[in-house]
């Protein structure tokens, strides 16, 4: 429950509030649909994936705890994992829209207003800036654009092994950087035990 005592959408879903389903679709429907279409070229597959993701959300809503992260992150985790599992089951890499040579730069044109980002996304944004140029490029294409590592290898003319290595190390560095950021923020707020 939030500090104001008001129940979050997921908490309302967990308690069986049917109106919360509409609220959830209003707030997060576009996000899930965007992710589903990013990972599925065929419209019907994207629809199936979206249905599966929301079913997981309804089922797991009772497990959400706002102290561990935002609703948006919780929903994105469920969506991303479900989409990757679907791809793995189908033994295909995520199929994405055709990218141009300037994708990484172009994507900045569509960035959410920074003020609208969740705390976790703000931290991630800061930590992304600390990566090397190659790592930044690879992880952005991999996670944000949904391009397979094969696709990144072709696009950047980099050996596949190098792409994998950059992507994995970038994710680990981001995780460490985000953990440090949390510690610094806690220290600043006097929350360190």
């Amino acid at each position: 429950m939030s500090q104001s005592g008001e129940k979050s959408i997921l908490e309302r879903i967990a308690s069986g509030d049917q109106q919360a389903v509409s609220d959830c679709l209003d707030r997060y429907g576009r996000l899930v649909w965007f992710l589903a279409t990013r990972y599925n070229k065929r419209h019907a597959d994207a629809e199936d994936a979206t249905q599966e993701i929301f079913m997981e959300i309804w089922k797991n809503s009772g497990r959400f705890q706002s102290t561990l992260g935002s609703e948006e992150t919780f929903i994105t985790m469920i969506a991303r994992r479900r989409l990757i599992d679907r791809c793995r089951r189908a033994s295909v890499q995520p199929e994405t829209m055709q990218l141009t040579a300037d994708d990484a730069e172009l994507s900045d044109l569509y960035v959410e207003d920074q003020a609208e980002l969740t705390d976790e996304a703000m931290k991630a944004s800061e930590c992304l800036r600390k990566l090397s140029e190659e790592q930044h490029q690879v992880i952005t294409l991999s996670i944000q654009q949904g391009v397979s590592h094969d696709g990144i290898s072709r696009k950047l003319g980099m050996p596949l092994g190098t792409v994998k290595s950059y992507a994995r190390r970038a994710l680990l560095q981001l995780r460490d950087c985000m953990s440090r950021t949390v510690m610094v923020l806690n220290a600043a707020e006097g929350n360190v035990r």
Partner: peptide, 9 residues
């Protein structure tokens, strides 16, 4: 972390 990175952009 991956979810947060995805939400940045």
């Amino acid at each position: 972390t991956a979810a947060a990175v995805l939400l940045v952009n």
